[in-house]
Simulated scan of single mutants.
Amino acid sequence: MCKARGVVGKSDRFLQTLDHLRDVIVVHLLQRLDAGQMGRVVDGEWTEDDEDLFRNDGFVRLASRYSESIPDDVVEAMTGEPRRLFLIASLSCPWSHRALIMHRIKALEAVVPVKVASGRRNEGYPVNDNRAWRLPGTGRDVTYVHEVYTASGEGYTGSASVPLLWDSANRRVVSNDSLQIMKAFDRVDSCLSGCDITLYPEDLRPEIDEFNARIFLGLANGVYRAGLARSQRHYDDAVAGVFETLDQLEARLARGRLLFGRRLTLSDLVLFPVLARFDVVYHTHFRCTRRRLADYPMLWAYARDLIGLEPFASDVDFAAIQSGYFLNDGDHNPHGIISERPDCDWSAPHERNAFGALLVSLRAGGVAEFAPPARPANDSQQVTS
């Protein structure tokens, strides 16, 4: 009996050892997959080496390779040559979201098609749920966004980021800078959106540029610096900046309906995607836990005000946001567990209209009441072929 018990005991320990080894292997593989999501392209080849993104254990965002102002002839082609330009964007990405909002405000769905990058990020963003997609203007099938970059330049080195604007006539990436893409959409000279409006009026441009830089440094990039920090010092520094910026925004929005009084500007489009993601991923996954968006009365009401507008609401996909971050961004969730979504009522009354009606600048000068275009019937804002 004793001998039999000894055999059983050894067998149990052996099975436990196998179970442990299995768990270690699974965790290692998941960590490798997650580590690869911060990869990049070097000399036209995808690599999971991400050391350029981390300096002294702090996250450093790579500069966009295609960050110049988009030429006038490309802007004119958006309406003059429909379906020549394509916007590739992700519903989880805040930088993509801001471009998508501008795209909708200018009602460009029919002339600049959108390709939503979605699927498991085995080699960065996939373009078609990990299935091949014929890149417009080429005979090339691509599966990942990095292949779009190498189609533009075979020896490309840099990040394979979204959003990006693809020119099918010249078979090249025009821009992967979200602000430049937004400004180009803003410059489109058409009445597709009902009236020729601008969210980047000349009288506010210096202030808008300065404000956008502050949002980037303290908040939009600050949450990434916190969530991807590899040392306590870098995390503490980033989190301090995040909440200092939120405190400043809270005070500013106590004085007006939008960031620049009642006028809708690019800055509102830059800020909203960050706020939409704050409680669902930045507060949790990126460990910005001091306060929630819902703990800021003015910011929370401001965000609910904007999500009540069709161009802002159309591409808010909380499921895509959570899966995009929890399964891909950072290496501190090796088991791929997606946290429960906060119980927040985005439709609750906000009372921001007490400041007065929303306004928008006109390209010809002056302002008008903002009347956002309705979402076209049966529009998914995505090209499927």
Rank of each mutant, 00 (worst) to 15 (best):
P82C: 04
R83S: 10
R83Q: 15
R84A: 01
L85R: 09
F86M: 13
L87T: 06
L87M: 08
I88T: 14
S90M: 09
S90R: 12
S90K: 11
S90V: 05
S90D: 13
L91Q: 07
L91N: 04
L91Y: 09
S92A: 14
S92Y: 01
C93L: 07
C93A: 09
C93S: 14
P94K: 13
P94G: 13
P94C: 12
W95C: 14
S96W: 04
S96A: 15
H97V: 00
H97E: 09
H97L: 07
A99S: 14
A99R: 09
A99L: 00
L100T: 03
L100W: 01
L100K: 01
L100Y: 03
I101S: 00
M102G: 02
H103G: 02
R104P: 06
I105Y: 06
I105V: 15
K106C: 04
K106R: 14
A107D: 14
A107H: 02
A107R: 01
L108Q: 05
L108G: 03
L108T: 05
E109N: 13
E109W: 06
E109H: 15
A110T: 10
A110N: 14
V111G: 07
V111E: 12
V112F: 12
V112Q: 07
P113G: 11
P113T: 12
P113R: 10
V114D: 06
K115P: 01
K115F: 00
K115T: 05
V116A: 07
V116G: 04
V116K: 14
A117S: 13
A117K: 03
A117L: 00
A117C: 12
S118V: 11
S118M: 08
G119D: 05
G119E: 05
R120I: 15
R120G: 05
R120N: 07
R120L: 09
R121K: 04
R121L: 12
R121S: 05
R121V: 06
N122Q: 05
N122M: 02
N122H: 08
E123Q: 14
E123I: 03
G124D: 08
G124T: 00
Y125R: 10
P126R: 14
P126M: 12
P126I: 12
V127D: 03
V127C: 07
N128V: 11
N128S: 06
D129I: 06
R131D: 15
A132R: 15
A132S: 09
A132H: 07
W133Q: 03
W133P: 04
W133M: 14
W133C: 06
R134T: 15
R134S: 14
L135C: 08
L135F: 07
P136S: 02
P136M: 02
G137M: 11
G139A: 00
G139S: 04
R140Y: 00
D141T: 01
V142E: 06
T143G: 10
T143Q: 14
Y144L: 01
Y144G: 05
Y144S: 03
Y144K: 02
Y144W: 08
V145T: 12
H146K: 12
E147N: 09
E147T: 01
E147Q: 15
V148W: 04
V148L: 13
A151I: 01
A151T: 00
A151Y: 07
S152I: 10
G153Q: 05
G153K: 00
E154S: 15
E154F: 08
G155T: 11
G155W: 05
